[in-house]
Simulated scan of single mutants.
Amino acid sequence: MQSGLLRLLGTGPREAARQAAVLLTVAGLLALLGILNDRTHADRLIAVALCDAGTALAGFLLPWNRMGRFSPAWLGLAAFAVLGLSTWSFGGVSTGTGPFLVLLYSWAGLHFPRWILMLYLAPATVAFMLPLILTGQPQAVVGSAVILMPVALTVALLIEAQARHLRDDRERLARIEEWRAGMVSTLAHDVRAPLSTVRGVLEELQDSPGFTAHDQRMVAAALRQTARIARLADGLLDLHRIDSSGHLKLDREEYPAGTLVKDALQYVRADADIRTEIPPGLTIRVDKQRFEQILLNLMTNALRYGAPPIVVRVARDGAYDRLEVRDHGPGIPDELRTRLFGQFAAGGKQGVGLGLWIVRQLAEAHGGRAVAEARDPGVAMVVTFPLNQTP
Rank of each mutant, 00 (worst) to 15 (best):
S106L: 06
I242P: 04
Q137W: 03
R231F: 00
G34Y: 06
I176R: 07
H111I: 00
Y105V: 01
V22C: 03
A56Y: 09
A233Q: 05
L157G: 02
G143M: 12
R18T: 06
L101S: 00
A257H: 03
L298S: 07
L6R: 15
F100E: 00
D190I: 10
Q225V: 08
A17H: 02
R275I: 08
A372F: 05
R167S: 12
D273T: 12
A42I: 07
W107H: 10
L158S: 09
N388W: 04
V184L: 09
L29H: 01
E364D: 12
R337F: 02
Q293D: 03
P150I: 10
V155W: 00
R39F: 14
R275S: 12
D263C: 07
F385S: 06
P99C: 03
A49I: 06
A58R: 11
L336R: 04
M299V: 15
L6K: 09
L187W: 11
H366Y: 09
A49W: 02
L282V: 08
F90H: 01
A31P: 00
I229Y: 14
N37L: 11
A73Y: 09
V379Y: 04
A272N: 09
A56L: 11
L6W: 15
R231M: 07
G109E: 03
W115E: 02
V311I: 15
M1P: 13
R164E: 10
A27N: 03
R369I: 05
Q350G: 15
A188W: 00
A264H: 05
L296H: 02
D334W: 09
Q293W: 02
R18L: 09
L130N: 05
Q19P: 03
A73Q: 02
A58C: 15
G59F: 07
P138A: 09
V261R: 05
T226Y: 10
L265I: 14
L387Y: 11
R114F: 01
S89R: 04
G91K: 00
L61K: 14
L323M: 10
G258V: 01
H111P: 02
R7L: 14
V311G: 04
R231E: 12
G281P: 06
S208K: 07
V325I: 10
T97I: 05
G210I: 10
Q225I: 05
L24M: 11
G318A: 11
V198L: 15
T212M: 02
R7I: 13
A78R: 12
R337T: 13
A222M: 09
C51A: 15
L130T: 06
G281Y: 03
N65H: 12
I294S: 04
W115F: 08
L340T: 02
D321I: 09
I176D: 04
K249P: 09
Y120N: 01
A78H: 13
V184F: 06
G355V: 08
W64Q: 14
L265N: 06
A42H: 08
L104S: 00
A230G: 12
M67T: 07
A17S: 14
G351F: 12
Y120L: 11
S71R: 13
V268F: 08
G10N: 13
